[in-house]
Write a protein that binds this DNA or RNA. Sequence first.
DNA 1: ACGTTATTATAGCTTTAAACGATAGTTTCG
DNA 2: CGAAACTATCGTTTAAAGCTATAATAACGT
Lengths: 299, 299
Amino acid sequence: MSINASLPRLDWLRAFATFAEYRNFTHAARALGLSQPALHTQVKHLEEALETPLYRRDGRTLHLTEAGERVVGYANEVLGSMRSFVSEVRTGRDQRPVTLTAGEGAYLYLLGPSLEAFRRDHPEHPLRLLSEDRDTALESVRSGRADVAVTALAAAPTEAALEADLLSVVGISLAFRSDHPGLCDGGALSLDEVANAPLIAPPAGRPMRRLLEGAWLEHTGRPPEVAVEASGWPLMLEFVRLGLGVAFVNAFCAPPPGVALRPVHDLEPVSYWMLWRRRSTPASATVEALRRALARTSR
Amino acid sequence: MSINASLPRLDWLRAFATFAEYRNFTHAARALGLSQPALHTQVKHLEEALETPLYRRDGRTLHLTEAGERVVGYANEVLGSMRSFVSEVRTGRDQRPVTLTAGEGAYLYLLGPSLEAFRRDHPEHPLRLLSEDRDTALESVRSGRADVAVTALAAAPTEAALEADLLSVVGISLAFRSDHPGLCDGGALSLDEVANAPLIAPPAGRPMRRLLEGAWLEHTGRPPEVAVEASGWPLMLEFVRLGLGVAFVNAFCAPPPGVALRPVHDLEPVSYWMLWRRRSTPASATVEALRRALARTSR
DNA sequence: ACGTTATTATAGCTTTAAACGATAGTTTCG
DNA sequence: CGAAACTATCGTTTAAAGCTATAATAACGT
């Protein structure tokens, strides 16, 4: 009944956290400044302390188990909290950097004012801004490498480990050269009106591209013909300016001179969500429950 | 610019936490199953890692510094969270015991139904119930040994480290034998009406005793004459039943057969508070601020 | 198919550091 | 002022964490 079964060491948690990042002992060990065997035994110790396998081998690639995923998240949480506490005690004030991850588009067109405001109101906290695509960003939040992610999602994530808030819903607009014949005036466009213009689109596989392909098929009966592939709205808009074609972009984009936007009503608007890891101080939920129970006491 | 200055080890935190409990290296070391020098160096290492003295010597007695107080709290928090996480991973579910500390009176007359309800709604969480007096209970919460305290306080504590909720305000009643001449009927009593009855009161120095002495002086111009000292309302009520005198008790007390209660209006009612440690995941406040800043984003 | 490369996992040896016993140094108390 | 109670330090011992070397295994290229 291992009542006082030894706690895992923080070294082991850190070791496992960086191992989880690389999923490769050799590289992770180099990143930690350790030998590969040393890292290996640290992870092994952690597994023994938790009496649970944390990763699985499929041939030469290593996958985290479900328990492993939870442990990474907790490890990063505890390590981050510890680091910030230490620096807080040492310097007398909280200087923990806050890490935000988002896509380039969100930074350029959505988050600017908020970040300025945060910087102004909390100058004491360094702000680490990662630029990552949707999946990487979610993974960064899950694993605790980032505190908050902002990204476009079809719906709030159902994962229990994450909490989310809807930030903004933005429509899709068509970007075209101001001198484009036949597009310059009018309200919302339909897809058919632009079915024949050469198209600048994100690379195959990106979420926005898939959205486009679906809607195109539905409205015109055939897949879109993409003239130019470009990643990121600034590039797409630049290519529009150069006359390489038209592009579908989020309505919040600021078009460069010579480029105009018109809303498109056949495309679903995109929802931007802010996501963060549900803090798993496992105690707190229970303690909260007890507090609620007590608060029901005759008042 | 110690960017990666080594983190304190959990051993050191645990060592310091139990040292803080005893404020005595020798005893704490015995409690930990360590030699006194070993414990001493662990605490020293912690101080070096935090670059801050955690205790001070006044002759032979040791006091925690202010930083030391914060570190104990954080240490207990982190250790508790770690223990519960480990057992959660090992067993697959959260079994963290929740620790409540309160006085005997609160348990007997105030908290019963709430505790029953909590037990029914959360049978998976062991409940540890400590019986401590006010100061010890507060100290237990501050140091993280207990999750929640319930105790009578004149006002909400102003300490930044604690949060509090008012649970209940209860008046003071006089407990007397049902056959007492002249007391049996009527509404609220004044102090003068009972100034001559032999008095059963808590031992000198207890909060309730001090309250009584203050009010007595104010209303009758002289200190009360205490016939019997007894600690705890059950004992006091029992002595009332035996005819040793009358007693002032909280109105929520359940008098035994043969004993009656009547409210007393010259005595201030007593407020029962629930207190808990403000969770200091130092990150969370900042992250919260960032989230608020982002949420101000055009919606 | 077979050698080459990349990587995990184990073994033996070395080094680091944590624990211990002994003890000097302080303060308090009778 | 001596005894008792502790803290803090000093070598010494012991445990554990690191390193190099290497066996074992899977993927890859020719």
